[in-house]
Structures are given as structure tokens and as C-alpha cells.
């Protein structure tokens, strides 16, 4: 059996992980891979922790990634990196968006947002850190943060040779194609 690649996107409900993974998996299908992608709806969307998982290769069975199996984990929110680290291969890569969304226990003052997350991660695994929110804001629309992160993910997976422009144009909101393309390329350049 040929090797299966596993990509884990983690973040907070409402951050746009689903659109990013939809674009990625469409591109992988077009490139001839067998692809499975999983997401969870419902409760998770009310500000909860969310994951989207993509697996691709010659033949994929399980639609979900097991612990210690992700080749790349992209963290749309910084603290989520720690929550899901168990799912990453020790030889894998982690892309972290240096962006904090405090959760309920932090908002009510019961817990502190953990400090030194990036330093801790860097001591354990190969990490790329950047501020996707700032890049998106500089481009003029903070909502493109997910596409900036998609660009970084594509680079991290070594998939940058594929034809992304058409796929992105066809999958983002009409009228925002150029902006999203810029965001994608800025993400690729960021790591």
C-alpha cells in the first residue's frame, strides 16, 4: 500500500477551516489522489474547538486521522496546537498562526491563556510560526486568514507545484477571487 498523507487543520468554530480544507481536497482529487476528508458539525460550531482532517494517497480507508499520524498540522489558533499535538507524527510539521482566541474558562478568569506555547512546540517538533491575521489584514480583509493559512499549508506539504489559481477562483466568494489569490500566495511566501 502506498503511503497515505494526513493533514490536520485545527481551530475554533467560525474560523473557516472547512472552506480551506474543501479547496485543498478538491485540488487533491483533481491531481488523481484518493481523498477522504472529515469534519464535525453541530455543537462544535458554537465557538468550540474544531478539526478538519484530510487524508490522501492511492487508496484511503479511514476518514479520520489517528494519534501520532498527522504529517502536517495547521493551527488556525495558537492554543489549539497544544490540544491536538498528540495527533502529529514526531517527524511531522506544525504550522502555527500566532493568533489567540481565548476560550470560556479564560474569559471568565478561571484560567490563563497558556504562555510560551511556541517555545514549547519548537522544543518538540518542526514548527513554522507566522501571523496570518496580520497578513490578511494588510491585504485588506481579515476574513481571508483561512486562505493565507491554506497557502502556508500547501507550501509545508510540498504541494506548491499544483495548479492552485483556478481551484481557488472557483471555490471562494464571487468578487473576492483576486483578494483570495493574493492571500494564498502571501501564505505560501510566509513560511
Amino acid at each position: 500500500m502506498s503511503e497515505i498523507k494526513n493533514i490536520l487543520l485545527v481551530g475554533v468554530g467560525g474560523q473557516g477551516t472547512i472552506l480551506a480544507s474543501k479547496i485543498l481536497s478538491t485540488a487533491l482529487v483533481n491531481a488523481g489522489y484518493d481523498v477522504k476528508m472529515s469534519e464535525v458539525h453541530g455543537m462544535a460550531q458554537r465557538g468550540g474547538s474544531v478539526t478538519t482532517q484530510i487524508r490522501y494517497g492511492e487508496k484511503v480507508y479511514s476518514p479520520i486521522i489517528g494519534k501520532g499520524e498527522a504529517d502536517v498540522m495547521v493551527c488556525f489558533e495558537k492554543m489549539e496546537a497544544l490540544r491536538w499535538i498528540e495527533y502529529v507524527k514526531p517527524t511531522g510539521k506544525v504550522v502555527i498562526n500566532d493568533y489567540e482566541i481565548p476560550s470560556a474558562p479564560i474569559l471568565v478568569g478561571k484560567m490563563e491563556y497558556p504562555q510560551g506555547i511556541i517555545e514549547e512546540m519548537e522544543g518538540k517538533i518542526s514548527v513554522s510560526v507566522f501571523k496570518a491575521a496580520d497578513i490578511a489584514k494588510e491585504l485588506g480583509n481579515s476574513k481571508t486568514m483561512n486562505i493565507v493559512l491554506l497557502g502556508a499549508l500547501v507550501k509545508a506539504m510540498g504541494l506548491d507545484h499544483m495548479d492552485w489559481d483556478d481551484i481557488i477562483r472557483n471555490n471562494v466568494k464571487k468578487g473576492f477571487e483576486d483578494l483570495n489569490l493574493k492571500a494564498f500566495h502571501a501564505g505560501m511566501a510566509a513560511i
Binding site: M43, R46, G47, R83, E86, K89
Partner: peptide, 19 residues
Amino acid sequence: QAKTITTDTQVPGRPPTLC
């Protein structure tokens, strides 16, 4: 079990909330 990386940091939960 697969080899994994773990953390000792207490990660605050992220339960769903009313918007």
C-alpha cells in the same frame, strides 16, 4: 500505540458557548 508528542501544559478547555 503510535509514537506521540505530549504536553504537560494545562490547556484550557474550549467548550461551545452561546454566541
